[in-house]
Write a protein that binds this DNA or RNA. Structure first.
Length: 165
DNA sequence: GTGTACCATAATA
DNA sequence: TATTATGGTACAC
């Protein structure tokens, strides 16, 4: 049994797919890219997933929210991907790291491979790939669109001019 | 700005 | 199975 939770928060659509105990996917979409019309569908979802809706709303209203407690289904992805995502999950709210920093943790210099894996992140926000930026302080890419990445970092109060570690 | 080293995946042969 | 193409990078010019 799969559950789907659809939420609209100002110009953003968020769609979460879960099974009984794990989140399987989260999509983050700008309004213009959302294909279906109308308002979010109301369905019965597991209680812990309903809590996520509240957390998401709090997050976008500027509260400090830790999404780390939600169980994510990542076991079916490659070992390398899981390592990258696990490391990224540890980055605290309001802080950023560089792609190189992740590489150091994983003992690899395949920085582009890391970016590639992050671009395939099935759980934006929950795995905070928006907190991974280029070493020179510029944002780097974001699969859901650079505007969203910028906005997420602004919400968290992050400014990284001048480069980071 | 350009070139090159870097490494996981997907696409292609 | 082997080869190439493609990146959400980094670093030295």
């Amino acid at each position: 049994m799969l559950y789907s939770l659809e939420i609209k928060i100002d110009s953003l659509w968020i769609k979460v797919i879960s099974n009984e105990e794990e989140i399987e996917k989260l999509s983050l979409l700008s309004e213009n890219f959302f294909i279906e019309e109308g308002s979010p569908k109301k369905r019965r979802v597991p209680y812990w997933l309903r809590r996520l809706e509240g957390d998401l709303r709090n997050y976008f209203s500027g509260q400090r929210v830790d999404f780390g407690k939600y169980p994510l289904k990542i076991a079916n992805y490659s070992v390398f991907s899981q390592k990258v995502w696990r490391e990224v999950k540890k980055i605290p709210y309001g802080e950023v790291r560089s792609y190189k920093w992740i590489g150091k943790k994983l003992n690899t210099r395949g920085y582009r491979a890391i970016g590639r894996v992050l671009s395939l992140n099935p759980f934006p926000l929950l795995i905070p790939c928006h907190r991974v930026v280029k070493k020179n302080g510029s944002l780097g890419g974001f699969s859901q669109g650079e505007e969203i990445k910028k906005r997420l970092l602004e919400i968290e109060g992050v400014f990284c001019e001048g480069g980071i570690n």
